[in-house]
Lab assay of single mutants.
Amino acid sequence: NQASVVANQLIPISTALTLVMMRSEVVTPVGIPAEDIPRLVSMTVNRAVPLGTTLMPDMVKGYA
């Protein structure tokens, strides 16, 4: 089972991601792979991401 990136807090729309905002967790459905966390830092989300939500590729500008 692959770990995915999960929001560690509410991430408001257009917020630049930082390490403290994300954690890795094995979830269903599978989202962005946890090993991509370093790549996600400073990318922005294009929607509000509630606490505990799995980050999907279409939620992060420039990721997909």
Rank of each mutant, 00 (worst) to 15 (best):
N1T: 15
N1C: 06
N1Q: 15
Q2S: 12
Q2A: 12
Q2F: 14
A3K: 11
A3L: 11
S4N: 02
S4W: 03
S4C: 05
V5S: 01
V5L: 02
V5R: 03
V6N: 02
V6H: 01
A7K: 01
A7I: 04
A7H: 01
A7Y: 03
Q9F: 10
Q9A: 12
L10P: 10
L10T: 14
L10H: 13
L10K: 10
I11Q: 00
I11S: 02
I11W: 02
I11R: 00
P12R: 08
P12D: 09
P12W: 04
I13L: 12
I13H: 13
I13E: 14
I13K: 11
I13V: 12
I13P: 11
I13D: 14
S14L: 10
S14M: 15
S14K: 15
S14G: 15
T15S: 13
T15Q: 09
T15R: 07
T15K: 06
T15W: 05
T15V: 09
T15D: 02
A16C: 06
A16I: 13
A16G: 08
T18V: 06
T18E: 10
L19R: 14
L19G: 08
V20L: 10
V20H: 13
V20K: 15
M21T: 02
M21Q: 04
M21S: 05
M22C: 03
R23E: 05
R23W: 04
R23N: 07
S24L: 06
S24H: 11
S24A: 14
E25A: 15
E25H: 09
E25P: 00
E25C: 07
E25T: 07
E25Q: 15
V26R: 10
V26S: 08
V26I: 13
V26Q: 11
V27C: 06
V27T: 10
V27H: 03
T28F: 14
T28K: 14
T28L: 13
P29S: 04
V30D: 07
V30F: 13
V30W: 09
G31P: 01
G31K: 02
G31F: 03
G31V: 02
G31W: 03
G31T: 00
I32F: 02
I32K: 01
I32W: 02
I32E: 00
I32S: 01
I32P: 00
P33N: 08
P33K: 13
P33D: 05
P33V: 06
P33R: 09
P33F: 08
A34L: 03
E35D: 13
D36T: 09
D36R: 09
D36E: 14
I37K: 05
P38S: 12
P38C: 07
P38F: 11
P38R: 09
P38Q: 11
P38N: 12
R39H: 10
L40I: 11
L40D: 00
L40W: 03
L40K: 00
V41I: 13
V41G: 00
V41R: 05
S42K: 11
S42A: 12
S42I: 04
M43G: 03
M43I: 03
M43C: 07
M43A: 07
T44H: 11
T44R: 13
V45G: 02
N46V: 11
R47C: 06
R47H: 09
R47M: 12
A48F: 13
A48P: 14
A48C: 08
A48R: 13
P50K: 09
P50A: 12
P50Q: 14
L51S: 15
L51M: 15
G52F: 04
G52R: 03
G52W: 04
G52V: 03
T53Q: 13
T53E: 09
T53R: 12
T53L: 09
T54A: 05
T54R: 03
T54H: 02
T54W: 03
T54S: 04
L55M: 11
L55F: 09
L55W: 02
L55A: 01
M56Y: 08
M56K: 12
P57N: 06
P57Q: 06
D58T: 10
D58V: 10
D58A: 10
D58M: 13
M59D: 15
M59V: 08
M59Q: 05
M59H: 09
M59E: 02
M59S: 06
M59A: 10
M59C: 05
V60G: 02
V60T: 00
V60E: 01
V60A: 02
V60D: 01
V60Q: 00
K61L: 15
G62S: 07
Y63P: 04
Y63L: 06
Y63Q: 03
A64Q: 14
A64N: 13
A64F: 09
A64W: 08
A64T: 15
